[in-house]
Write a protein that binds this DNA or RNA. Structure first.
Length: 501
RNA sequence: GGUUUCUUGGCCGAGCGGUUAGGCACAGGUCUGCAAAACCUGCUACAGCAGUUCGAAUCUGCUAGAAACCUCCA
């Protein structure tokens, strides 16, 4: 632990930022609601899981030992017409439900890798935890908070609200009385005693494909339940952080909390974090109404919404420029700007890492030293303040200015103390690579021996031409490289190159 | 209809009562054989109205517009 610095986290339960205090010092249990794998991941998922990836990474950076659990839901998610999402997907594609789940689970994991998110510590699958879910239904029944109706089991929300004052509604701010009239008519409505009640076990109809035996009927678990059962199994009855998209607050998280109370008698998580939506055309991205763009379309540029292709890392940077609790609107202009900003940050870091550290150590701290240290401090303060990546990036940019000045010799090398430069190298690299999770997708100089050798030769030939004032040859080389997507940058110390538009 | 949230300069986007956020774009300059890159300078905004305060983008109220949830969604 290198963590005396207090971390502030916005808790949806209180509606304000709170100092984060883990249940067990040094350890963090974090559960994030994962995807329902019935079709391809969409970008909104990517933003949510990228946000939690940065949160996970920052907790690791702070020295916490984190158990990060993110589920895969492959059953129990009903559509409007009461059909299971998996089964519906299976029927459409004439596949086994598990084939559907498998295909999209693999696709999801691939996409997470493309966005360079770290895999969770545990990625439990709903259908792999049917016994745990059945046991939880039984516990809820034993505690008198559920009732069986025609083979299905429902959670008794009014009774729960009476027994646990001020719990139902604590996540979403919903008021139970309002729910009486609001809940819309569903097929199984008549089996419920109260409109706000929700199924924790559903009796199967003849056409249902994904079914299991239970004490009540052959059927399947309700949505919500898998998260309660699996978070309890892997993180305990009470753990530190529970996360998910904003749109899961109600009913999913509200019901999850109710189930945990109903089964275990206590609140599952101390801190509830909700990420905000990714917008397209100023509206929430949504598959159902077609207002959507897939990650692949962004990577290829094949969409009416964008003018060109964008790399996964440019997208990741784009997301990081906004705070996770703010909505973020996708526009071509914004992506263009983010892409340039991303390249700049990566170039700056490369410049910094390659900067030689002079042996001479000045005894006094210079103004530049202080300014650079202030940038570093401000970057981490930003992260400490509810994971404010926007502020952290701004601070990195501020620091970058000094690095460039130093590289251009607009600032004398003696202006920065060796230990400060060393600190900057470590801190900025840690921030950009380990915390932001950005990789250099331009694959420019440094990695490939063959390309580097080739480029050294080409640039040497060009340097010779320039020495001879053979501008024709010099420019021919530069233009040809440019056409090949390689940018040559002439500096005082010679020329460097990088790949990128 | 109910609940909640949002409205920041050409664009994106921080901000949580008193500071230049930052990026992109644009204009001028330095450097350069010319460019590019980098650096410097400029552009300095908070939907509207009223109020609280020595002081408000930040707090309160009203008005206008937008969004999310209430129904599957990250």
């Amino acid at each position: 632990m290198n963590q005396p610095r207090p971390l502030k986290i916005y808790n949806s339960l209180s509606g304000k930022k709170e100092i984060f205090t883990p249940i067990t010092p040094g350890y963090v249990g974090m559960y994030v609601c994962g995807p329902t794998v019935y079709s391809d991941v969409h970008l909104g998922n990517c933003r949510t899981f990228t946000s939690f990836d940065v949160i996970y990474r920052y907790l690791l950076h702070l020295g916490y030992k984190v158990r990060y659990v993110r589920n895969i839901t492959d059953v129990g998610h009903l559509t409007d017409d009461g059909e299971d999402r998996m089964a519906k997907g299976a029927k459409v594609a004439q596949l086994e439900p598990m084939e559907v789940a498998q295909r999209y689970t693999v696709g999801f994991r691939d996409m997470m890798r493309i966005f360079n998110t770290l895999p969770p510590s545990i990625e439990p699958i709903a259908t792999g935890h049917i016994p745990e879910q059945i046991a939880m239904v039984q516990q809820i029944l034993d505690n008198g908070l559920g009732y069986e109706s025609n083979g299905s089991v429902y959670f008794n929300v009014p009774k729960f609200a009476e027994q646990y004052k001020d719990v139902y509604g604590s996540v979403s701010g919903r008021i139970l009385d309002d729910l009486y009239n609001e809940t819309r008519e569903l097929k199984s409505q008549e089996e419920k005693r109260h409109p706000a009640d929700f199924a924790i076990w559903m009796k199967a109809r003849p056409e249902d494909l994904m079914i299991w035996e239970s004490p009540w009927s052959t059927g399947f678990p309700g949505w919500h339940l898998e998260c309660s059962a699996m978070s309890t199994k892997y993180l305990g009855k009470n753990f530190d952080i529970h996360g998910g998209g904003n749109d899961l607050k109600f009913p999913h998280h509200e019901n999850e909390v109710a189930q945990n109370h109903g089964a275990c008698g206590c609140h599952p998580a101390n801190y509830w974090l909700h990420t905000n939506m990714l917008l397209l055309n100023s509206k929430k991205m949504s598959k159902s109404d077609g207002n959507t763009i897939t990650p692949e379309q962004l990577f290829t540029g094949d969409s009416p919404f964008v003018s060109k292709s964008y790399s996964p890392m440019a997208l990741r940077f784009f997301m990081l420029q906004a705070h996770y609790r703010s909505t973020l609107d996708i526009t071509d202009d914004a992506l263009l700007a983010a892409e340039k900003g991303y390249r700049k940050v990566m170039e700056t870091n490369k410049l910094l890492q390659n900067m030689p550290i002079t042996a001479v150590s000045s005894s006094t701290e210079t103004d530049t030293d202080r300014a650079i240290l202030a940038c570093i401090e401000s970057a981490f303060e930003g992260m400490d303040d509810d994971f404010n990546t926007a502020i952290a990036i701004a601070s990195v940019n501020d620091l970058g200015t000094y690095i460039h000045k130093l590289a251009n010799q607009q600032l004398d090398g003696s202006e920065i103390s060796p230990w400060v430069l060393e600190r900057a190298k470590a801190a900025i690299n840690d921030l950009i690579i380990n915390v932001f999770g950005l990789t250099d997708d331009t694959a420019s100089g440094g990695d490939d021996k063959a390309i580097n050798g080739l480029m050294d030769l080409v640039l040497q030939l060009r340097a010779n031409a320039r020495t001879n004032k053979d501008w024709g040859t010099s420019d021919q080389i530069r233009d040809a490289l440019n056409a090949a997507g390689i940018v040559v940058k002439d500096g005082k110390e010679g020329s460097t190159w990088s790949i990128g538009a």
